[in-house]
Design a protein around this nucleic acid. Structure first.
Length: 470
RNA sequence: CGGGAUGUGGCGCAGUUUGGUAGCGCGUCCGCUUUGGGAGCGGAAGGUCGUCGGUUCAAAUCCGGCCAUCCCGACCA
C-alpha cells in the first residue's frame, strides 16, 4: 500500500499535520494562526460539546451568551489578569469608519464582562450560587500556532460561577474538574489524565488556584486538556460582585471559571492516532460503525442489504454511516475510513451476502472477522465496548512506560526528553522550576502521593510532574 | 519576537548553482475497461512560479523589502 502519512516515529509534528490534512479535519485559515474546522473535524467537536454540555448541566450550570467585544477598561480592572493577557490581545480600534473612543478587546476569556453582569444580578445570598456557562469563540494572538492545539481563535466552553463562600467555590471548581472534565476525558475520550494543581508560576492570570488535567501525547509531551480555576475574591473585588448575607452584612462573592476547548481535538489525535491515521474512541465517534459496500451485483442487492444492516444498527443505538460509493475503488474507501478513525467497519460484498456474512473490521487492533449477519448488532456492541477500553488501556500503558520516577531536577530534565518525570516537589521548588523552564521543561502540575489534588502547593509530600508541553 | 528551512496548477515535488518564457507524480474532468486494501489505458482542463520592488534585451532563476508555512527557542493558556 502506498504511504499515506509520514510515520509517527519519523517526524511526529509532520505526522500530526498529515493526519489533519488527510482525514480532512481542518485547514489553515487565511489569517495566520486561524483554522478552518472541516465537517469531519467539526463532527468530533460537536460530539465533545454534546457530552460536555450534558455533564456541565448536570452540575447545575446554565448556558448563556456574553458579547465578543469587551471594553478595554474591563480587562484593566484586575491587575494580574490584564498583565497575563495583554500580550495576546486583539484590540479593535476602529468601528463604523471612525476611531473608537475606547478601544474594544476581542475576548480572550470572559471573566471581566461576566463579572460586570454578575455584579448586577447578584444582590442577595439567595442569588447564589450563580452558575453560568457559555459556548463561544475566543481570541488569543498566538506567536506559534498549531492547528487545534494553539490557534489565535478557538472554540471553547467557559464556565463562570459565583458563590457565597470560599469552600463552596472550591468545591464547585473541583466538582467540574472531576465530574465533568475528568469523567469526560477518561470515559469518552479514553484519555488518561493526571489531575492536579498548577504551581504559582503556571497559574491562570488572576486566579488564586488553578487545577489542570494533563494528557500525554504520542511523543511523550504533556498537553493541558482543561482547567478549572478558583478566582478567590479577585474578580468579585474588581467588579463589585457582592451580596447581602443572611446576617444582613455585605459580603464579596467567591468566583470560579473553567474551560475546555477545541484543543481536545488535537489531544485526541495525538493520544490515539497511529501510522494509519486517527483512532476515535467509540464513545466519542460521530460514526461508530461504517457499513461499506465493497462491490455490488447487478441488482444492487448488496447495497440494499447494507442499508438494512445500517437501519438495524441505528435502531440498536449505534451511530452508523453507510459507504455505498461502489464507483470508487474499495481500497481508497478503506484507507479513508482508516484515516478518519471509524472504530468499526462492516464490509459487505456479494460473497459475504451469499454466505450470510459481513466482515467486521476493528480500527483499534486491525482485526478482520467474518461474522453472521444475524449476529452483527450484538458483536458490534461488544467490539465498541472492548475497543473503548483498549484505547484507554493503551494510552495508560504508554504513559506509564514513559514516566520516570526521579529525585533531582537534572534527572527530571533528562527524563523529559522522552516523556514525563515524577519528582518530589520539595526537590524542585521555585528555583528548580526556573531551572527546568530554562531547559524547555515545565512543571505541569502537583499531586499528592495518593494521586489526589492538593489544596496548597505547600502541603508536604507533594509530587511534581515535569515535562515538555504543547 | 530570535535562529534555521521552505514557498512553483487542489496536494507533493523537480527546475534556481550556470537567467532564454514552466515540467513530473498524485488528484480533477471525459471515455472505455475495472472494483474483496489508495485500479489500468486513452484523452483533456488547470499555474501572473507567495508578494512588492530592483537589475537585465530577457527573471521561477540574480538582489532587496514584505507575507505565509514548518522546525528549534523565547513568551503564554
Amino acid at each position: 500500500m502506498a504511504r499515506v502519512l509520514t510515520p509517527r516515529a519519523e517526524d511526529f509534528p509532520r505526522w500530526y499535520q498529515d493526519v489533519i490534512a488527510k482525514a480532512e479535519l481542518a485547514d489553515n485559515g487565511p489569517v495566520r494562526g486561524t483554522m478552518v474546522i472541516r465537517p469531519t473535524g467539526y463532527a468530533l467537536w460537536e460530539r465533545m460539546q454534546a457530552e460536555m454540555d450534558a455533564r456541565i448541566k448536570a452540575t447545575g450550570a446554565q448556558n448563556a451568551y456574553f458579547p465578543l467585544f469587551i471594553p478595554e477598561s474591563y480587562l484593566r480592572r484586575e491587575a494580574e489578569h490584564v498583565e497575563g493577557f495583554s500580550p495576546e490581545l486583539a484590540v479593535v480600534t476602529h468601528g463604523g469608519g471612525k476611531q473608537l473612543d475606547e478601544p474594544v478587546v476581542v475576548r480572550p476569556t470572559s471573566e471581566t464582562v461576566i463579572g460586570e453582569f454578575m455584579a448586577k444580578w447578584v444582590q442577595s445570598y439567595r442569588d447564589l450560587p450563580l452558575l453560568l456557562n457559555q459556548w463561544a469563540n475566543v481570541v488569543r494572538w498566538e506567536l506559534r500556532p498549531r492547528v487545534f492545539l494553539r490557534t489565535s481563535e478557538f472554540l471553547w466552553q467557559e464556565g463562570h460561577t459565583a458563590h457565597a463562600t470560599e469552600e463552596d467555590a472550591r468545591a464547585y471548581a473541583r466538582r467540574i474538574l472531576h465530574e465533568a472534565y475528568e469523567d469526560f476525558m477518561v470515559n469518552v475520550l479514553a484519555i488518561p489524565v493526571v489531575v492536579g494543581r498548577k504551581t504559582a508560576r503556571e497559574r491562570f492570570a488572576g486566579a488564586t488556584n488553578t487545577y489542570t488535567l494533563e494528557a500525554m501525547t504520542g511523543d511523550g509531551k504533556a498537553l493541558q486538556m482543561g482547567t478549572s480555576h478558583e478566582l478567590g475574591q479577585n474578580f468579585a473585588r474588581a467588579f463589585e460582585i457582592d451580596f447581602l448575607g443572611a446576617s444582613g452584612q455585605r459580603e464579596l462573592a467567591w468566583t470560579t471559571s473553567w474551560g475546555v476547548s477545541t484543543r481536545m481535538v488535537g489531544g485526541l489525535i495525538m493520544c490515539h492516532g497511529d501510522d494509519n491515521g486517527l483512532r476515535v474512541p467509540p464513545a466519542l465517534a460521530p460514526i461508530q460503525a461504517q457499513v461499506m459496500v465493497v462491490k455490488d451485483d447487478a441488482n444492487g442487492e448488496v447495497t440494499s442489504a447494507a442499508r438494512k444492516l445500517a437501519d438495524a444498527l441505528r435502531d440498536a443505538g449505534v451511530r452508523v454511516g453507510v459507504d455505498e460509493r461502489v464507483e470508487t475503488p474499495f481500497g481508497r474507501r478503506a484507507v479513508d475510513a482508516e484515516l478518519k478513525g471509524y472504530p468499526i467497519r462492516l464490509e459487505m460484498g456479494p460473497r459475504d451476502l451469499a454466505a450470510g456474512n459481513v466482515v467486521l473490521v476493528r480500527r483499534v487492533n486491525g482485526s478482520k472477522t467474518p461474522v453472521p449477519l444475524d449476529n452483527v448488532v450484538a458483536l458490534v456492541h461488544q467490539a465498541l465496548e472492548e475497543d473503548q477500553k483498549a484505547l484507554y488501556e493503551q494510552a495508560l500503558q504508554f504513559r506509564q512506560s514513559h514516566t520516570a520516577e526521579v529525585a533531582t531536577v537534572d534527572e527530571a530534565a533528562e527524563a523529559a526528553a522522552t516523556g514525563w518525570a515524577r519528582i518530589p516537589w520539595s526537590a524542585v521548588g521555585v528555583e528548580g522550576e526556573a531551572a527546568l523552564n530554562a531547559r524547555g521543561v515545565t512543571v505541569r502540575c502537583l499531586v499528592r502521593e495518593d494521586g489526589t489534588v492538593p489544596d496548597s502547593e505547600d502541603e508536604p509530600g507533594l509530587i511534581a510532574y515535569a515535562a515538555r508541553s504543547y
